[in-house]
Write a protein that binds this DNA or RNA. Structure first.
Length: 319
DNA sequence: AATGGTGACAACCGCTCGACT
DNA sequence: TAGTCGAGCGGTTGTCACCAT
């Protein structure tokens, strides 16, 4: 016996919404609100739609101040940064991006960002890149070559204004600043990162690093005193310790791999970052520098792991 | 011009969680 | 305390437009 359906599927319309339905729903909610009951709402306004469908339509499409498409580089970085930290918790990620919906971000991740990250270009990106190439060639032939070649390349002028391919950047060019990454002794995007850090902390240090064995960790904000901490602030290391992994702030490779294993579900799709994908040869030393930008540190797999761990702990206020 | 492949996006489905009784 | 219900969430699917061949 399964659960009773939320509505009578037979008498409910499915598929794309018509402009009339949109208008009905929008004007009603704008005037009366949802009334806290989505299930009853379609009956009230005479829509042959499931309440869940109405809610989704409103949240993802009709709600005011919704932004569609055209994700900026800044948004890309925030999404990426959060995905790596907390996994596919789209609603939380969306909360950090005003005007974006979880559905939008989820779609964007699945269709664009993931491919960007793994180096598989979409046709659109290929076209954009060809366009860029063409533009640069044109500029060069106009005697503007020097301006085109410098500019963003030294990172002094902020982010490039054009779309680029993460994977190719990793190999051929300078790495774009990611919030939280350390460049020339200072952290990039601290203003963005601060809110993300707070969010992550609120989630209980969520993310691949949340289960890392950091025994008796006390966040700095509580003055180093465990007695001042709320109960939720302790880092649960029991699962790891039960498995025979001893706590250590400088983690050997095995420990980190095990830690990531616990987050396999949430990190699905980024498996290869954590050395547990189908391609077992993919290890930390091969991680896209977007994730762990300081390639010079990663002279070995373990070096990369430790670097990333240290930086992430810093992000979470753990250092 | 026709056709098959691919990408983007909207919408649906089923599960979990929390509020309420 | 257990059961029920609705809201919210993430994964998946369907559909349409665009592009390459």
């Amino acid at each position: 016996m399964g659960r009773a359906p939320c509505c009578d599927k037979a008498s409910v319309k499915k598929g794309p919404w018509s402009p009339e339905e949109d208008t009905k729903l929008k004007s009603y909610i704008e005037q009366n609100g949802t009334g806290g009951n989505w299930i009853a709402l379609p009956q009230k306004i005479g829509l042959k739609r499931c309440g869940k469908s109405c809610r989704l339509r409103w949240l993802n499409y009709l709600r005011p101040n919704i932004k569609h498409g055209g994700f900026s580089e800044e948004e890309d970085r925030i999404i990426l940064s959060l995905y790596i930290s907390i996994g596919s918790r789209w609603s939380i990620i969306a909360a950090q991006l005003p005007g974006r919906t979880d559905n939008d971000i989820k779609n964007y991740w699945n269709t664009r960002l993931k491919k960007k990250l793994f180096g598989k270009q979409s046709r659109k990106d290929q076209r954009q890149q060809q366009q860029q190439q063409f533009t640069r060639q044109a500029m060069a032939s106009d005697g503007m070559k020097q301006e085109a070649a410098t500019g963003d390349a030294n990172g002094s002028s902020g982010m490039p204004a054009v779309t680029y391919n993460w994977h190719q950047q990793a190999i051929a060019g300078p790495v774009p600043p990611v919030p939280g990454m350390i460049m020339e002794g200072h952290r990039i995007g601290d203003e963005v990162d601060e809110s993300i850090r707070k969010l992550l902390y609120k989630l209980g240090g969520a993310g691949p690093f949340a289960t890392l064995p950091v025994p008796q960790y006390v966040p700095p904000m509580y003055g180093g005193s465990p007695s001042l901490m709320p109960p939720s602030c302790t880092v649960d290391t029991s699962s790891l310790n039960e498995g025979g992994v001893q706590g250590s702030s400088a983690l050997p490779a095995l420990e980190l791999d095990q830690s990531f294993h616990f987050n396999q579900v949430k990190l699905d799709g980024l498996d290869c970052f954590f050395g547990m994908g189908t391609d077992q040869s993919m290890r930390w030393s091969e991680v896209n520098p977007l994730v762990c930008p300081n390639n010079t540190v990663a002279s070995s797999s373990q070096g990369m792991q430790q670097y990333c761990l240290v930086d992430e702990q810093a992000n979470l206020g753990m250092k």
